[in-house]
Nucleic acid binder design. Structure first.
Lengths: 209, 209, 209, 209
DNA sequence: GATGAATGAGTATTCATTCAT
DNA sequence: AATGAATGAATACTCATTCAT
């Protein structure tokens, strides 16, 4: 209870949103520190400086906390991708991919411990990508990018290509965060990921389809 | 999370080995049916037709069951890869990669439900690959393959290239198993994965490194 | 269990009384639908279209809701009995008893689900009858009836006889409501209850007292 | 943990039964002391000198403890009734009824606090009489008694008569235990109950049926 | 070695109640 | 008076693990 003078009544919605934010942050911290098994709602509440009851006012159960964190993460990634693609710099397909990979790696560097747990323990946490609006958005955005460069790329089936690009990109980014290669810097890893994606898209002799 | 729990004693006698096998099979079945949360040692014991005590004779704790399953899976994948590379047919790098991807996808088709849980809930469960002999073996084997084709491939750092190839290969195979693309057959997916790997290795214009 | 919780304040204004009524009705509905375990003050408030705070304005705690419902029920029964006995038709003792039993059975038919819960889960919830004015009133009224027919009845101790008559009457009425006999209609049950009471009062050879 | 020398291995069944007995006794004690609301499984376990886990080994949930207690009680009442009716003394119908009522009152005197809670809080505790073997047995036994005296009794429908006798008998016995009449001894109450039952059965002028 | 009854620490969740607005 | 967000004590139940037999 702070004694600082505050507006008597914080508007309903803003207050709720702040609470959700606080709870989610606490969840992230606890999760990063102790992993899923070591995380429990009472502890999260305590860390958030909130009562357990309040946690349950906003989240129906423990797992929904993780799901929300996942969705938040996906939304951040979506935002990062959108930001890159909305930029006005003219860059080719490879340039765009490089910028996206760079942005994703950077975004994961913010809270590496959290992302480690998140990806290590629940990469697909009960969130069939179809149901995650953010994942949907990302898929559409990347598909659109490929479409814009349709002429330059080898794969003909854009759905399949988008799937492959996203899977590879995500898994390599996550792998880079989770098990940082002992002898290689992030720059090198970044380069490698881009090479992989560009290599796939821009084709190579003797390939299929 | 302790560091990679190990079986309490290495079974020497056939009987013991059979018991371990029975327990592991039961674990796999339960895990596939009910997921991690629904799996517990007493149930595993019951399903295995064995007492809980016996389970603890061979596995120090619950997680070691999962770890063992993971290691078993890794060993199977290693065996599949070895089998392909030990073959006498002459095939180029791409041919080898194609054969490996094919073998891995096939291996995952055997018990899809189990693999789904295994990868969905604990993709990195077995911790640093350095501690898994099978993963070590796979790494070495693929690195050797790349070495044999050093001249044909673009990446110069073979450690990095091996890491990238393995990460992409595994994640795409797993993704294919976990979320089968609605409109695409396994053959197409297989082709795509090979394209990705070959594209990376065989290079494309404008790449880095 | 505190001793018979009482409404926090006796509502004087019509508005208040209406509120109490609304809350009590909601309580009855919830209780009938979900039983005691499934009933909670927040739900009652919601069903009543009122805030929890308002519930606590009129009822000091959860149990007082039930108590009030019981008291309401007792008052209704008292009213039913009074109505019968205030009637001008000349009927003998047996006629009066028959009319009372009939009225009670009819009163219980109004909201059988509620009465079922009320009697099934808290038959004595409202504690020593001495504290319930309605129960007091009923006792006095029946005792007076017996007194008026003192010459016709066998039992000499009127307090004991009143107690026995009330206990038997109530328990048989409740039993009839809670576990309706599969093969017997209400008319038959009613007849039986009256036979029991009249049999007791009007005596039989070989009895005590 | 007692250090007393005991047979190394108490036979499986006997041991289980003893445990069940201990747990039930503890439940009875706690229930009598604190009522339903104040009773919780951990406390019961502690009082029984047993772990919670053991309680749940034998009882699937909290309510099953109460149900078991109820069933136990019903069985004891059945036994009491059987004992009376199996006696060799020649007594008429009234004599039998008197003996039964006496036995029931006596049985309830053993643990009045428990019976008070049991009847006060859950007279019909989720045990539709149809499902309780003991209650079934009691019904049949009393019905048989009435049948043997068919010629002496007024009611023609024996099912209905048995129901009425049992309801009245039980409710009056319970009422006597729960709210002992201030100015009347047990003997008087007993007499009254018998008068009620006999009055009903043996008929009175002006009755129905 | 095998058994499985017993253990009891650990935790998600509920809900009566309060009180700042 | 009315509101309803916030509180947090309370509790049923689970399950990994042990160990006497």
């Amino acid at each position: 209870m702070q004694a600082l003078p505050q507006p008597r009544r914080i508007p309903r919605q803003a207050r709720s949103r702040a609470l959700v934010e606080v709870i989610l942050e606490a969840t992230a911290r606890v999760l990063a520190e102790r992993g899923y098994a070591g995380t429990n709602t009472n502890l999260v509440a305590e860390r958030a400086g909130v009562s357990v009851g309040s946690v349950y006012q906003y989240f129906p159960n423990k797992d929904s906390l993780i799901t929300a964190l996942h969705e938040q993460h996906a939304a951040q990634m979506q935002a990062a991708i959108e930001a890159v693609l909305a930029g006005t710099q003219p860059r080719g397909l490879r340039g765009h991919l490089a910028a996206i990979v760079h942005a994703l790696l950077a975004a994961h560097q913010v809270a590496p411990a959290l992302h480690r747990v998140l990806e290590k323990e629940f990469p697909f946490f009960d969130a069939p990508a179809e149901q995650s609006p953010a994942d949907q958005g990302i898929f559409q955005r990347i598909r659109q990018l490929l479409e814009e460069h349709r002429n330059e790329i080898a794969p003909r089936d854009l759905d399949l290509a988008t799937w492959a690009v996203l899977q590879a990109m995500e898994s390599l980014v996550h792998a880079a965060v989770i098990t940082p290669l002992p002898r290689h810097g992030m720059a090198q890893v970044e380069q490698t990921i881009v090479d992989m994606l560009a290599g796939y898209l821009c084709g190579a002799p003797g390939r299929g389809a």
